[in-house]
Design a protein around this nucleic acid. Structure first.
Lengths: 191, 191
DNA sequence: CTAAAACATTGACATAGAGCAAGAGTCAGG
DNA sequence: CCTGACTCTTGCTCTATGTCAATGTTTTAG
């Protein structure tokens, strides 16, 4: 399935949309091929786009004062991903967006996207859904991870996000769980 | 200013709304007076309402397996607050909503609220803004608190949410920061 | 295919913060 | 305005997790 067809399917799953309607704005999504480790956004830049991942995986992460990375989110294929806070506030992002694997993404500019939100009801619904899901994901992250011992967080990840453990290097998994890779390694050893 | 006038002002600050338009649905917001420590929602119940705090303060918190409380949010006057995840998903909430102080709130049912979202553009915008702000708050909480030592979290709170330190009992502040009240007490001592 | 670099594991040690217990202070409700 | 019940503080101890260092393993780029 072509990248744009993937996007169409994604939208249709949430809101009925004809091919004719889609063709009116599909060109606003431009195809982008990125190599492993390539950056799509750097901390400090204002994020003025939204991304739809067709294949591969991106991660959004922040670098703390002492250099420790904190990964907020992994965006796999058929997911939208962006630095939503920067996009909404129009302020510099506090996170990087980097390809974890060689990836293919569709990028739409913030202005085009917000214009579609206002004018195309299906996209308005997509955005609302995007916000709702982003919020829910964020909440679950707080309640499921914060305050629990590291071993519990690992179990949670195994149960709820098995894909991450399979596809993602341990170092990044650790930064997602908010622990060091040393601790993660030990915890995996004791199962 | 009366509770309903407060609500009107809140909406008008985000989207122009005439008094006539407002009067069409203002009665869907019912006035509620709650005592200190009284509950508006209990963990496990499905949250089918949205709340606008006119005076006082609510807190949303979760009780972990070992009994430790984790406070997600304090809603002070002129803020909306609810268990958004439960409201959106229609599933049992994993958090309690409790009045921290004697409070006056306006409550609207989920169905009435979502109906207004669909039919009143101003309320649609309110909801969008509510989602955006909820998400941003949640993100900041993760990036600003997670992984940082307790003293840093306290400093962050002093700088960014001074109101919380003034109005809220230490025990609850600690549960908001994800530390014990013992640790908080010691940290405050060493300034 | 190979060398260099990045990543993962493991041990020894250090430390922030938790848990417990006891005492002092504060506050809400009758 | 009392009084019992929360709430805050503070010392001591203990544990989970971070840090550092050394070694082995996998990945990747040329």
């Amino acid at each position: 399935m072509s990248p744009h067809d993937q996007l169409l399917s994604y939208i249709q799953a949430l809101a009925p949309l004809t091919l004719a309607e889609f063709s009116k704005f599909k060109d606003q999504f431009v195809l982008l091929k990125v190599k492993r480790n390539e950056y799509l956004l750097r901390e400090g830049e204002v994020c003025n786009f939204n991304l739809f991942v067709c294949s591969g995986a991106l991660r959004m992460y922040h670098i703390g004062l002492e250099g420790q990375e904190l990964t907020r989110y992994f965006a796999f294929e058929n997911k939208f991903g962006t630095s939503l806070t920067s996009l909404i506030e129009g302020k510099p992002a506090i996170e990087n967006i980097q390809a974890v694997e060689k990836s293919v993404v569709l990028r739409i500019s913030k202005t085009d996207f917000l214009n579609l939100v206002e004018t195309v009801p299906q996209v308005n619904l997509i955005y609302r859904n995007m916000l709702e899901q982003a919020y829910i994901t964020s909440q679950k992250r707080i309640y499921d991870l914060q305050g629990k011992p590291a071993i519990e967080r690992l179990k949670w990840l195994m149960n709820h996000k098995p894909g991450i453990l399979n596809r993602i290097p341990s170092r990044l998994v650790a930064s997602y769980l908010g622990i060091t890779s040393y601790t993660l390694s030990r915890l995996k050893a004791e199962l």
